[in-house]
Every structure is written in structure tokens, then in C-alpha cells.
Computed example of a mutant assay.
Amino acid sequence: MAGDHGSKMEISFGGRFASSAIAACLAEICTIPLDTAKVRLQLQKKAVSKDAGTVPKYRGMLGTVATIAREEGLTALWKGIIPGLHRQCLYGGLRIGLYDTVKSLLAGDNLFGEIPLSKKILAGLATGALAIAIANPTDLVKVRLQAEGKLPPGAPRRYSGAVNAYYTIARQEGLKALWTGIGPNIARNAIINAAELASYDQVKEMILKIPGFTNNVFTHLLAGLGAGFFAVCIGSPVDVVKSRMMGDSTYKNTFDCFIKTLKNDGPFAFYKGFIPNFGRLGSWNVIMFLTLEQVKKFFAREVPA
């Protein structure tokens, strides 16, 4: 970013990490009700709807949000927000903060012009995989707390809060259990991270080539929506497998979860919760990227060109 009098603006890794964490946390707070709805829809099995001729408990994004709010109270929609913020500080800060650095390393010093899309995708895959490998326990606890609402009224809750959940899982299931679902989670987050960051980068570049468009809030909004759409289309199947493995301990491994889901619920089960997922990821990306573009300005410093 160019400054005045032959200077330019740069941002350190610490600044990129902090701005990414702040933007990701704000997006998480605003959109976690939709994420809770998505998790409930993904965990709802088809067989339930056939028992005694009943219909599924959760139907559609708004219907699921309304059901949760009515039966469990509005605060239930923000269940998992504490580990969600833990996750975004670690995962969001690392995956987004490292993206530009890794992208530049992959492009090399001799690149002229725009960085190829393939390099952007590789950078997104690498930073997404690394970040979630570190942050997986926060993701697990978030899903477990969101799934608590499925228990029958009066049934004892397994966890009293986020810190208790970390401790209880490690004590009862072993420390290794905090990395349950790490396989599909790495796949899911590497793929979605690449889809989000590379598509945002690419869509933003394309928009800025259109006469009349500048690097402003409207451009960031359009690019954020594009990033969310690509992320959901590409990442939904692994997202469903990840949520089911984390929310239900009966699955032996990733392959077992995939096969059982396909056999019992059919191929469309992998796109369960697609609308709330897009509603959530679309709005999440818009809020995150709009915030990120603004917050980065506070961490940027002027250096000689």
C-alpha cells in the first residue's frame, strides 16, 4: 500500500495476526446463531424423522433458529461462543495472518505481475491445515457445547462450560481425544480456507479491473460474498463429516462416518444445512473481510519505499 513522499505502508506478522484475530472474532460473535443452526441440522439424522411418523425437529435455517430459541432460550444460540472465540483467535489469526507470507514465498522473488490463482490456493491450503492442527481442541469443544441442546429436557449436561469441557474431555477420554476429528477437520479447514482466501483475493482483483470500481467497502462486500459461496460449495461434505464425528462418538473414523452417512441418509446429507451454512459463511466472510480491511490500517506502518 503506497504512502506519500516515496514511502509505503507495511504490516508485520504480529499486526496481521492481531487484525485477523479481531476480525474473525467479531464475525464469530455476529454469526454463531447460524452456525449453531447448521450444526443441529447436520447432526439430525434422517432415521429420526421416520420414528413414529414424526417429522424432523429442525427444518430450515430460520426454523431451526426459532426452535432453539423457543425451547432453550435465546442464549442457547450462542452456545459454544467462548471456545468459538478461542478458535478464531488461534485459527483465524494464524490462517489469515500467515496467508500473505506463504503466498509470497510460493510466488518467489522473481514474479512479475499478479500472483497465479494456483499459488493462492496452495497458500490457503497450507495455512488452513497448519492453523486447525493447532486449534482443533477449540473446534471440538465448540461443537460439543452446541450439540448439548439435543439432549432431552432434564437430562444431565456433560459440560458446565468451555473450560470444564476441555478438562472433562481430556480426563475422561484422554488428551488425544481433544484432536478427535482432526482428519476431516484438516481437510475441511484447508479446503474452506483456500476457497475463502484465494477466491476473495481473485474476486477482488477481478472487480478492481472493472471500470468505476475502487478498493472500497462495496468491493470488499462483493468479494466477501463470493468467498463465502465458494467455501460452502466446496467444503460442505467435509464439514458435515467433521460435525458428525465431533458431535457423535459412535463413528470409528472419518471413512466410517462418510460411509454410514452416505448409506443411512443418502448423498444429499453431505449438503445438510447448506442454506444456514451459506447464510453463516457468507455473512461471516463479509463481516470478517470488511473488518479486516479496516483494522489492518491501524497496524500498518510507513516505511521508506
Rank of each mutant, 00 (worst) to 15 (best):
M1F: 06
A2L: 13
G6D: 12
K8E: 12
G14E: 06
R16H: 12
S19W: 00
A21M: 02
I22H: 00
C25R: 02
L26D: 01
E28G: 05
A37N: 15
K38I: 06
V39K: 03
L43V: 05
A47G: 15
V48N: 15
S49T: 11
K57L: 13
M61D: 02
L62F: 15
L74Y: 01
L90G: 07
S104E: 02
D109C: 02
N110Q: 10
G113S: 03
G113R: 06
E114M: 01
T127W: 01
L130V: 13
A133F: 07
I134H: 03
T138C: 09
D139L: 10
L140M: 10
L145G: 10
G149F: 08
A155G: 03
P156D: 03
Y159L: 04
K176M: 14
N185D: 12
N189W: 07
L197D: 02
V203F: 07
V203A: 10
I207G: 12
K209R: 09
I210T: 10
T214P: 08
V217N: 15
T219H: 09
A223R: 14
G226H: 10
A227P: 14
F229C: 10
F229M: 11
P237I: 01
P237T: 02
V238E: 02
D239Y: 09
M246P: 03
D256L: 02
D256E: 01
C257H: 00
I259D: 01
K260F: 01
T261E: 04
F270M: 00
V286L: 10
M288I: 11
L290E: 08
L290K: 08
